[in-house]
């Protein structure tokens, strides 16, 4: 098991050490009485379940079971306190006629599409920073900085940045002679304004994924490409980007999830306004179920179900890709 080739000496040492720590019999087991208990025979098949039990129970209780509850709640009318009343598909029917629902749905779509811009933007910054000049490490950290800050603070920062009276944006725009824009007060700009705020940390996230990916790009292939006369964009497209596939996949996953989870920014920056124009499903659901607009838990649950079904399409795709990869191993 431990061949004496110089390469494996290290692992063998680690192995022996670990085994000694684990209390393995050092020489042989011949003198040991043979255990024949139930536990001894079933140890291998039982152990994983014992290790899984606490995690699974917690997860079933707080995540899986509530999903089921929300589904069933969406067929009830409930104010959160009294008796829930079964109303069949009424909540969904109301949803069908609800303009605010369509506004939210449309904004969700805008979020999804616009948010994907974080991926090329992140790649662009990663390419820009993938150098070895002095101090580049600090630059990379500082570029990554927005991701570490909470979305609440990002929201506040951008609210002030957009402010029509003192915001830096309008100060700069004024400098080049453009009249002030009230980004968050204008129903045409508001969603885009919030998305830009969201793109800021999201781009940083994609950037760090690509920086790591670029580190692992095979230098020989680049040299081979150079010899074949590939340069700049052609090199990027045909040699680099295919090798960045795993990073792109993760960037795609986290960006989609991030786009559909958008809540903090909207809540902090506009609270859904003006006139509910910046709502998305996640925010509208919260508003319906828990804010001063009334405690309509059943109706909120039906909105959540719609959001869940949208997300499910992506979840299914992610799981399918992961499954393909597992099989390939």
């Amino acid at each position: 098991m431990c061949p004496s080739s110089p390469v494996s000496i290290d692992t063998c040492y680690v192995k022996r050490q670990a085994m000694a720590d684990a209390g393995a019999p050092a020489v042989s087991q011949h003198n040991k009485p043979v255990k024949n208990s139930w536990w001894h025979n079933n140890q291998q098949s039982m152990t994983p379940w014992l290790f899984l039990a606490p995690g699974i129970l917690f997860f079933l209780f707080y995540v899986i079971f509530p999903i089921y509850q929300s589904f069933s709640l969406s067929f009830y009318s409930w104010d959160g306190l009294g008796e829930a009343e079964y109303v069949g598909a009424y909540n969904y029917e109301e949803l069908y006629w609800d303009d605010a629902f369509y506004t939210s749905l449309r904004n969700n779509l805008i979020w999804l599409v616009m948010y994907l811009f974080a991926i090329p933007a992140g790649l662009f910054i990663a390419l820009f920073l993938n150098q070895t000049v002095t101090g580049i490490r600090l630059y990379k950290s500082l570029f990554f900085f927005p991701f570490v800050i909470s979305q609440v603070v990002v929201g506040l920062v951008f609210t002030w940045f957009y402010d029509p009276t003192f915001g830096l944006l309008n100060y700069i725009l004024g400098g080049v002679g453009i009249p002030p824009i009230n980004v968050l007060g204008d129903e045409n700009f508001v969603t885009y304004g919030i998305i830009v705020a969201g793109l800021w940390p999201q781009t940083a996230y994609c950037m760090i994924l690509y920086l790591t990916g670029l580190n692992a790009v095979d230098p020989e292939q680049i040299e081979a490409g150079r010899l074949d006369g590939a340069k700049g964009l052609r090199m990027l497209w045909h040699i680099i980007i295919p090798q960045l596939r795993p990073a792109t996949f993760i960037a795609f996953v986290v960006t989609i999830i991030g786009a559909l989870r958008s809540f903090d920014l909207i809540s902090v920056m506009t609270n859904g306004g003006p006139y509910g124009e910046s709502r998305v499903l996640s925010f509208y659901m919260f508003e319906v179920a828990l804010s001063e607009y009334g405690f309509r838990m059943g109706y909120g649950a039906s909105i959540a179900v719609v959001l869940f079904l949208i997300m499910l399409v992506f979840i299914a795709y992610f799981l399918w890709s992961m499954y393909q990869e597992e099989k390939a191993r």
Binding site: V63, S282, A301, F308, M311, F314, I315
Partner: peptide, 9 residues
């Protein structure tokens, strides 16, 4: 990956 809102209530 589930949206928080489906768990909220």
């Amino acid at each position: 990956f589930v949206p928080f809102q489906i768990l909220m209530v």
